[in-house]
């Protein structure tokens, strides 16, 4: 298990996997699914900081994802802002929104926090659906390729390397953040807010900062996703997508950056695998979700790691 502990080791393994996976990807479709999985993973890694390390739930992160996507679409399409600048501006706006909302909302606990974040996600979704003059409404909005320093990212293969690079960056940021003073404060807050306060930690400020960071992760992934698909609909900001993101984090393993990644990859692949079961798809998906959580309540990666550790110990 030494692989997963030191910072650089995990990242190197991940980089190697990202480099090797294309050998097994037969065509554009497989690349596309891999890219979708990586974008979800970026959101989940950010969300995991909040849920896994901070112990704060959010059922509204699809809203931030959608804001990033629509921000990029509107800025590049309507105001001809360069894509990279649009991505940064959108992320900045999302950070501001998350900051303003964060303070009052993060005072809430447990299911009340779930409700509040759910409400924010739904409000964002409603606005995207209703303001059709700006967002195209339920019929969606088209946008162009992503360009980076004059080079245009287009086609599944370009996007694969782009997403892979951003994913590595996200993992690196996340691992560093966890080991930073902010990360330690966050874990202290998770353990006991009163205890953390007594030790001089600004618990409210800590939570807000991580909320903002996770929202920015979602926004950036949303912007990139929008450019990759070339077309977006308000569905990406729906409550279902928010619930899906939380499920990815919990299924993969809370408080584990790589767990969040594994959860995102699995839940992106699963519907593709199950699509062939037609009407039984939903039943099978539900059963797998229940089964995983019943038999691996800590999530896939931590539970498997535990198994391996035990097996090694016995040897």
């Amino acid at each position: 298990m030494t692989l997963f502990r030191p910072r650089t080791g995990g990242i190197l393994v991940l980089a190697a996997i990202i480099a090797l996976v294309p050998l097994g990807l037969g065509n554009g479709y497989f690349y596309d699914v891999a890219v979708n999985a990586m974008f979800s993973a970026i959101v989940c890694i950010g969300l995991n900081l909040l849920i896994g390390y901070g112990g704060q739930i959010s059922l509204g992160h699809a809203g931030f994802f959608a804001l990033g996507a629509y921000g990029s679409a509107i800025l590049t399409g309507r105001y001809e802002v360069p894509p990279l600048a649009a991505l940064v501006l959108s992320a900045g706006a999302v950070a501001l929104i998350a900051f303003v909302l964060g303070r009052p909302i993060l005072r809430l606990k447990g299911h009340y926090l779930a409700m509040a974040t759910l409400g924010i996600g739904i409000i964002i979704h409603i606005v995207l659906k209703t303001e059709s003059g700006l967002t195209g409404g339920p019929d969606g909005l088209a946008l162009g390729d992503f360009t980076l320093f004059g080079l245009s990212v287009s086609g599944e293969r370009d996007w694969y390397w782009m997403a892979g690079g951003v994913l590595l960056l996200a993992v690196w940021l996340s691992l560093n953040l966890i080991d930073s003073p902010l990360g330690r404060a966050l874990r202290a807050v998770h353990g006991s807010e009163a205890g953390a306060e007594a030790a001089g930690v600004d618990s409210s400020g800590t939570k807000v900062r991580v909320f903002v960071i996770s929202a920015v992760f979602a926004s950036v992934a949303g912007s990139l996703f929008a450019h990759k698909n070339g077309f977006i609909t308000p569905d990406i900001g729906s409550f279902f997508h928010s619930a899906e993101l939380v499920t990815m984090v919990v299924l993969g393993g809370m408080a584990s950056t790589f767990g969040a990644l594994v959860g995102a990859v699995i839940l992106t692949l699963l519907p593709q695998v199950l699509a062939s079961f037609e009407q039984y798809e939903a039943m099978i998906l539900g059963a797998i979700m229940m089964g995983t959580m019943i038999f691996m309540p800590k999530g896939l990666l931590p539970s498997l790691a535990g198994l391996i550790r035990r097996w090694r110990g016995e040897r």
Binding site: G26, I232, T233, D235
Partner: peptide, 19 residues
């Protein structure tokens, strides 16, 4: 079945064409 979601439709269309 894309479940009515545009993003799923895009992926499935790609799957149909490519795979």
């Amino acid at each position: 079945d894309d479940g009515g979601a545009g993003e799923k439709a895009a992926t499935f269309a790609k799957r149909l064409a490519d795979s």
